[in-house]
Design a protein around this nucleic acid. Structure first.
Lengths: 128, 128
DNA sequence: TCGAAACGATTACGAGTGTAAACAGTGGAC
DNA sequence: GTCCACTGTTTACACTCGTAATCGTTTCGA
């Protein structure tokens, strides 16, 4: 009672790769996902099928029957996932303060000139 | 060949809690860490000892002998850890673009007014 | 009609994690 | 001098993750 309780159905790295494929285009069959994802990751079809099953188990994707196979589609939106993970990071590392994350990025020179410009634009938007 | 190869000595959530204690004050004995951390997390001394051992194994902390016990201190700095994890998130979710992370936070209304003000100040600094 | 290909489901297995109990050595109190 | 408390080390165990192989079924081509 603890890892899965504290960690309810977190999407793992490998699983995320599969999600990315489905966020890009869906629905897809297992074979199609494997074609897309397995390519760069060097995964076998079997591996992709396992990941798909696990994602279905986590209710992250839905499997709609289509003849004797399934068509998979995301259930959770990418924006939600991204939001969840971002918040998690901000909470874990910056005491929940998003500005601290920003300060860190600035200090670590992790912000390119382009980044800074874009953020300025966004800020002007926000200030309106 | 893959999880530990792709994931060389990552610091886990539970381990991070121990690190936080040591980043706050160090060196500490195992018992002291347990007093600090075990309290809120409800961990037994045994659990804390295990985590300390694993962290030593990962070269994240150092154990200096002090009589018949050890004094533990961080080897990696919090800023480095935070930097690493932040970059990891930006890479995984925002294609490496920090500005995208910022845009997401803005859009998700994860930025408080205070956050925005602070960021503006930081930006002015950066522009100099 | 018969065998091969294609599918999902089941099983596998080592590494990492969360959480701890059991064990062994030792130094201090009495 | 003996025993207890404390310390690090070893072992444990269930669960997740990465990565598949195998199995059972079904369908399509020959």
């Amino acid at each position: 009672m603890s890892k899965q309780t504290a960690n309810p159905d977190r999407i793992s790295d490998a699983e995320q790769a599969v999600m990315e494929a489905l966020w890009t285009r869906s629905p897809l069959t297992a074979a199609e996902v494997a074609d897309t994802v397995g390519e760069d990751r060097g995964w076998s079809l079997a591996t992709v099928k396992t990941l798909l099953s696990r994602l279905v188990g986590k209710n992250a994707i839905a499997a709609e029957p289509d003849g004797r196979r399934f068509l998979y589609s995301p259930v959770i939106a990418r924006a939600d996932f991204v939001g969840h993970e971002s918040r998690r990071l901000v909470d874990r590392l910056f005491g929940g303060k998003a500005a601290s994350l920003f300060a860190h990025l600035a200090e670590a020179e992790a912000l390119s000139d382009t980044d800074i410009e874009e953020i300025e634009v966004l800020l002007r938007e926000l200030r309106k």
